[in-house]
Amino acid sequence: MDIRLEQASLHWQHHCVFSDLNLTLPGGQWTSILGQSGVGKSSLLQLLCGIADEAAITGQIFCSDGQPLAGRVAWMAQQDLLLPWLSVLDNVLLGARLQGGTVGSEQVEQARHLLVQVELGNRANARPAQLSGGQRQRVALARTLFQDQPLVCMDEPFSALDAITRLKLQDLAAELLADRTVLMITHDPLEALRLSDRILVLRGAPARLSDPIIPAGQTPRAIHDQQVLQLQAQLLELLAGEAS
């Protein structure tokens, strides 16, 4: 399913961050938006998730199947947002729990399977406080996958982690989210280059989206890939140029 966002505009304290922004998310592809802080990229993602401050940001969302997008997005934030009073398993099942009604044994089975996939099968009954930052974000990934929605929106999902944990989680995410429609917001060019099919840069004042950069090859791309390194340098220069 393709998703199209049209004429999005964001106003922050009587000042226009961007207006008339159009964004297309082709079905089954991983799109990343790269930009600096304060450029409105998180608001853009929250608009798609239906949790944006509606007074500030407006825009129209169209899905290629003609249905509204509301309620069909899985959101993964920079913080893991695991509820401390629930076990790891119940956190993965949170979607089912909040929908009301009872959680079926099939769903529990599926959640356990996802925990095995994120290599936390033996920690299902632990509480989030007993896990490390990387483990907690893996649980958040499992929770996002459990929702099984047509669109996955990730807001700097790995930026709170240390470099090594981040690389491992990127590989895991690339594997588990293959062939899904994903929108990822990040300020790390390397992360975008490793994981994305299409990269858009949001920059300027008012901000505009660049033409898509489409790196070749399979994701997750290697960190020493020549093309990745070259593009990373270009993207960094592009972003730094704006800052100066």
Binding site: Q46, C49, G50, I51, G71, V73, A74, W75, A77, Q79, L81, L83, L94, G95, R97, L98, Q99, G100, Q147
Partner: peptide, 20 residues
């Protein structure tokens, strides 16, 4: 963040109050 997550998970106001 908890409340935003609950909203993306389709929780109504009552569920948000009682479960979050």
């Amino acid at each position: 963040g908890y409340l935003q997550l609950a909203r993306t998970l389709g929780a109504g106001r009552r569920t948000q109050l009682l479960q979050i």
